[in-house]
Write a protein that binds this DNA or RNA. Sequence first.
DNA 1: GAGGCCCTCCGTCAGTTGTC
DNA 2: GACAACTGACGGAGGGCCTC
Length: 307
Amino acid sequence: MDGSIDDKSEDSPSSSGSSQPQNLSTVVHTITAVPTAIPNQPVQVQSVIQPTQQSVIQAAGQIQTVQVEEDGEGHLVRTDTDIGIEKRREILSRRPSYRKILNELSSAEAPGIAKIEEDKEEEAAITSIQTTIPSYVQTSAGQTIQIAAANQNELTTQGLQTITMTNAGQGAVTAAAMPAGTTIVQYTQGDGSQQFVTVPVSISPAGEVQAYQIRAPSSLPAGVVMATPTGITSPQQLAEESARKRELRLMKNRYKNREAARECRRRKKEYVKCLETRVAVLEQQNKTLIEELKSLKELYCHKAETE
DNA sequence: GAGGCCCTCCGTCAGTTGTC
DNA sequence: GACAACTGACGGAGGGCCTC
């Protein structure tokens, strides 16, 4: 490693002169970081710092003693007096996102670790995919229904629309998961935007879905339209209506969240990979330094003997 | 082949954090 | 404060491996 590490665990109290509390129940590491050849690494002792990263701590090219302790989850947290209790609490409670962490790592790290790009390109890609499948809709029960309207790409939420849907699959469509013979239909318009339709489903034995009128109530989010056969009068219908609305909201969130979860997992994987790479590099550096130290020791001993 | 176990991936929900 | 984005946790699906 490019810095001398004075790592003192619980059985070896610190002798570096810093005022460290002795009553810490967790393992206390005292790190003395010296100027190194490694590109500037800020003193950032936060939850993502791994034990193997202790040695890269450096501050303004000066020798500095930093005290850290494990936070109980294997994370190292700086506990010396430079960081107040409030600050420390903040560090512990606020865990940055994988995107942020990785970008920070990437900017501080040598080139080669790719930054996580903004989502613009991906969004464009997703849109292009969506626009290629405008003829199919998915119900809340996960079924795919083909819209057989003459020009479904021109469906609008203005005024009344009538569409006819036919079952695109081999088996019969069974509407479920919605109150009293209703289902939610999600479809993608020609411009790639998502549409959600609550439809009272009545399916013929042949698997054909009847025609429905679609309108766009102002209470629903943009891109969401409702299909209602009649007006709502009874409390039961109101309850059903609110249930429908709740399901609509969840439905819209589900679609977004599915994508978000995918992204999150991708970032997490990338982040773990990044850390693994970093560990490998640091292990290699460590090995090299140990070898160097060995050879220098031998050289020194040999010199002393000859003198 | 059947069944059990383990692992990975995915979708979903709920809670938290960030942004405007 | 509202809304969007993010992420941990949970459970289900599917595949690989092993044992019987």
